[in-house]
Design a protein around this nucleic acid. Structure first.
Length: 602
DNA sequence: CGGCCGTACTG
DNA sequence: CAGTACG
DNA sequence: GCCG
């Protein structure tokens, strides 16, 4: 008995290999060309997923509302398609360039369009399996997740774009932005090898671009090779990128997301910001934005708005939101993050005095310190003072045990003219010298009256990550466990003053003292120098591309937990100094070394 | 749709 | 355990 | 919000 099914394309998503194969056997009208399908069958249950699948398979459709009849194109369609968020456009669609059919953009699917049906339904898998069970083709409507009309006719000419219209154009054209919109000039320096999907070539921007940007021809500059990666640790990120004003606006939005506890939003904006920081040209168009890693439709639209208005409405609203202003104030207290900031706000508190008056006893120890020195911690620390503080720490270290080396890390090392705090990494070639050293140095600096408070003392003990399996093979060099990376986060105040006042006028400073065993000092320096996004992407890169686990106290294999030593020399001899060790870590990870000034990912 | 850095201290 | 910190 |  063969049931009378329509032509079916089967989505492999969410199907095991066996399951997939079995279904393929069972479908009498199976096609392997999605363009031929009348019905797309999939183990999916939500429309959002459907849209994703269609995009993935580069099938361009426009959703048909449930009230609309299937077949002939209704006259109202043209308007609607400018507004339908579900509209899916790909590089293979002539509509993506609005009739300016671009031969270079089309490859495979277009040739099949002529014989293809004009509409397609995406249907839950159950429709098919239950039809089989019932021995009859069940009504498809109950299982339909999505009905779409395939895009093949060109719409009417588009005139000079109004801003609102331009936004929609961008939206449509960027619905599947990456393959079609990142151009590069033939003969530009970067090659097309090894960067996968971002290396399609087009000689100039799609026609739409011109309508949305300017009257004259604008060729997009080539994307630098290093922007073909989503890892910020593979790109230079200068302190003052050409698009800083736009980046500042995005940073305002990110700040608001931070205060609202939207960690994922923060990550998203951080990725976009990091890519924009690495972009060496002044932006000209939204398409230029959308082809950057971490930048999609939303960021491109925001750029468009920025270009037209010089500011972002969302950023403006965030800045003038009184609640966010209070949350920001509270969030800037050391020891208070978004949850506690919100708690304070919900108690009706609006400033530091409220906290002191109504909540002092509910604060943790470190929060009390954070409130007490709120103003002083807000002050930036000039480079000269950073150096002076660091040198005092090094002197004390060498008084306890000569031979310590130090690198001032953090924002200072990245070149900032003034820092929020002081970060130093101390290490010593003698393994015995660093063990338990953090307590000694803190005590010494307390006794000399430099350290007034200790916020966190981390003596994360030497036993860590001793995977049972890690025992296979006597890995010659590093052998087993590295020692711990200890740290002290302290409050610092220079106890010397000359002005004859009775009270010490010197500001309290936040100082982070990190003690690393020599063997992993390169990781420590690398981990404590780079900006946050560089750091997160470095870890993500290690995980996804190298199956390694990076943190500032060492690198481990994810397979068996063994420690990986990139820092020692070819014969296992220790690195000559910490900066050499850092370079070796870059090298060992397969990353190009970057000077600290180029790790300013925000 | 699932993922988004990894670790340690505090209470 | 949740919250916070560090880059 | 973006990526795979």
């Amino acid at each position: 008995m063969t049931l009378d099914f329509p032509v079916i394309f089967l989505l492999p998503t969410n199907l095991g290999a066996d399951e997939l194969h079995e279904l393929e056997e069972q479908i009498p009208t199976l096609t392997y060309d999605i363009n031929e399908a009348e019905v797309i069958l999939g183990n999916v249950h939500r429309k959002q997923r459907v849209l994703f699948e269609l995009r993935k398979h580069k099938l361009v459709t426009e959703e048909i509302s449930t009230t609309e009849t299937d077949e002939p194109t209704s006259p109202s369609l043209k308007r609607r398609r400018f507004q339908t968020p579900g509209s899916v456009i790909t590089e293979d669609s002539d509509t993506a360039s609005d009739g300016d059919f671009h031969p270079l953009l089309t490859q495979s699917t277009q040739s099949t369009l002529k014989a293809a049906p004009t509409t397609v339904k995406v249907v839950k898998l159950a429709w098919f399996t239950e039809s089989l069970k019932a021995g009859t083709v069940l009504p498809i409507e109950d299982y339909t997740l999505y009905r779409g009309r395939k895009q093949q006719s060109k719409p009417a000419k588009l005139q000079q774009a109004s801003p609102a219209k331009a936004a929609n154009i961008i939206k449509r054209a960027l619905a599947d932005p990456k393959p079609s919109s990142h151009g590069s000039r033939p003969g530009s320096s970067h090659s097309t090898t090894s960067h996968g999907r971002r290396d399609h070539f087009i000689t100039k921007a799609p026609a739409l671009l011109h309508m949305t940007t300017s009257e004259h021809e604008v060729e997009l500059p080539p994307i630098p090779a290093y922007l073909h990666t989503t890892y910020a640790c593979q790109r230079p990120a200068p302190t003052h990128p050409p698009n800083e004003p736009f980046i500042e606006e995005l940073t305002k939005i990110r700040t608001a997301r931070t205060l609202l506890g939207d960690k994922i939003g923060v990550r998203a904006y951080s990725s976009a910001i990091a890519a924009l920081i690495s972009y060496p040209y002044l932006l000209q168009s939204a398409f230029e934005v959308a082809r950057l890693p971490g930048c999609g439709l939303k960021i491109a639209q925001l750029y468009q708005e920025f270009r037209e208005q010089g500011e972002l409405q969302e950023a403006k609203e965030d800045e003038s939101d009184p609640r966010l202003a209070v949350l920001k104030l509270f969030h800037e207290i050391w020891g208070v993050a978004e949850t506690t900031a919100r708690e304070f706000y919900n108690k009706g508190w609006r400033d530091l005095d409220d906290i002191i008056e109504y909540g002092w006893d509910t604060l943790t120890r470190v929060q009390q310190i954070g409130v007490k020195y709120y103003d002083e911690f807000q002050q930036k620390i000039p480079r000269a003072e950073v150096e002076s503080i660091a040198n005092i720490i090094l002197e004390h270290a060498n008084k306890i045990h000569p031979g310590f080396q130090m690198v001032i890390v953090g924002g200072y090392r990245r070149g900032k003219l003034a820092s929020g705090d002081v970060d130093v990494v101390l290490s010593h070639p003698d393994k015995a010298a660093t063990r338990g050293f953090v307590e000694q140095i803190v005590v010494a600096l307390e006794q000399s009256n430099y350290i007034t408070h200790t916020l966190i003392l981390s003596t994360a003990n030497t036993e860590r990550g001793q995977e049972p399996v890690a025992w296979k093979g006597n890995e010659k060099k590093s052998g087993t466990g590295f020692d711990t990376l200890d740290k002290a986060l302290v409050v610092w105040q220079d106890p010397h003053w000359t002005t004859g006042e009775k009270k010490n006028p010197n500001p309290h400073r936040r100082v982070d003292i990190i003690i690393s065993p020599w063997k992993t000092a390169g990781c420590a320096v690398l981990g404590w120098t780079s900006g946050t996004t560089f750091q997160r992407d470095l870890r993500r890169y290690c995980k996804k591309e190298r199956s390694l686990k990076f943190d500032s106290s060492g690198i481990r294999s994810r397979a068996d937990g063994t420690w990986v030593d990139f820092e020692s020399g070819p014969n296992g001899e220790p690195a000559p100094d910490m900066l050499t060790a850092e370079r070796r870590v870059f090298e060992g990870l397969g990353l190009e070394w970057r000077p600290p000034e180029e790790r300013c990912t925000g």
